[in-house]
């Protein structure tokens, strides 16, 4: 157990860590970089398809837009008298607000909030964003506590992060349920072009699966923290590694939010 031959090697030949981090963390960074490329392709592809269609404001006549503003925005979306016997989506189709020839405005599509029928555009998805940002903070607090070797704090913040992850997944399930309930499928879309629904399910589904994987990884690491594995190992770097993954999931959501709900 005397001196290793390794240490005499130059830095770039395996003598030292050239990036000054452990190999596991370095590989996590490079995995995330490749995952960033995957998500970039999906999101930029979505952006390209979206911009190849005209927007609602360009295609819907001005008097219809005024009608929508006065009848939809201040009132309830479902069962409102302005829609007569038709539902919200069907009325919008009849008015030409939703049509296959142009991209729908996101505030007309994502306007539901649990427990109310009011027209609340983008409010639910903002809540989802808030939940994910908050779980990112608890994750980074767990990492910070790990750096100080405070097992109890790591435990607490890891648990909060897992709860946040489940809350986000629940929100996404509800969002999908509403969207599917109104008739959106992979190959049909009452709100506009079919590619809109197809890419929505593909990209938010791919992101949601990342969140799910992140929650599973967090639970595994949380159980290891409980068992004292990292206390014995002498460092909490595994918490840092899953932390990197979890923050990346939050980062991707920033762009899913931007592209699908704002643009």
């Amino acid at each position: 157990m005397s001196n290793h031959a390794v240490s005499t090697k130059p830095t770039w030949a395996g003598g030292k860590s050239p990036f000054k981090i452990s190999y596991g963390k370095l590989m996590m960074w490079f995995f995330l970089l490749s995952d960033a490329f995957t998500f970039s392709s999906l999101l930029v592809g979505y952006g390209a398809v979206r911009f190849s269609f005209p927007s609602a404001e360009e295609s819907v006549p001005a008097e219809v837009q005024t009608w929508v503003k006065h009848n939809v925005v201040p009132f309830k979306t479902d069962n409102h008298e302005a829609f007569h016997d038709h539902g919200f989506v069907e009325s919008m189709q009849m008015k030409g607000v939703f049509s296959e020839s142009h991209w729908p405005a996101p505030d007309m599509v994502f306007n539901h909030f649990p427990g109310t029928h009011l027209h609340l555009p983008l409010m639910f998805v903002s809540l989802m964003t808030f939940i994910l940002i908050l779980s990112s903070v608890t994750m980074v607090l767990a990492v910070e506590a790990g750096q100080r070797m405070e097992k109890n704090k790591v435990q607490l913040y890891m648990l909060l992060t897992i709860v946040g992850g489940f809350m986000f997944l629940g929100c996404q399930a509800w969002e999908w349920t509403m969207f599917i309930g109104e008739g959106a499928k992979l190959f049909t879309n009452p709100f506009g072009p079919v590619t809109f629904a197809a890419l929505f399910f593909l990209v938010t589904g791919f992101h949601g699966f990342h969140v799910f994987s992140g929650v599973v990884l967090n639970i595994i690491i949380y159980l290891n923290v409980l068992r004292g594995t990292y206390e014995r190992r002498g460092h909490y770097e595994m918490v840092e590694k899953v932390g990197l993954y979890w923050h990346f999931v939050d980062l991707v959501w920033v762009f899913v939010f931007t592209f699908f709900y704002l643009i």
């Binding site: 001196n3 290793h4 390794v6 240490s7 395996g14 003598g15 030292k16 860590s17 000054k20 981090i21 452990s22 190999y23 808030f130 940002i133 908050l134 990112s136 903070v137 980074v140 607090l141 910070e144 790990g146 750096q147 100080r148 460092h235 909490y236 770097e237 840092e240």
Partner: peptide, 29 residues
């Protein structure tokens, strides 16, 4: 670092405090 073994080596971890973290949270919000 002198007895570098890539299978176990980790740099010494030290905390940078929580101030910047909360600031970033409010900024993102």
């Amino acid at each position: 670092e002198e007895n570098y073994d890539p299978t176990v080596w980790v740099p010494k971890a030290h905390s940078h405090g929580t101030r910047a973290l909360w600031k970033t949270f409010w900024l993102l919000l």
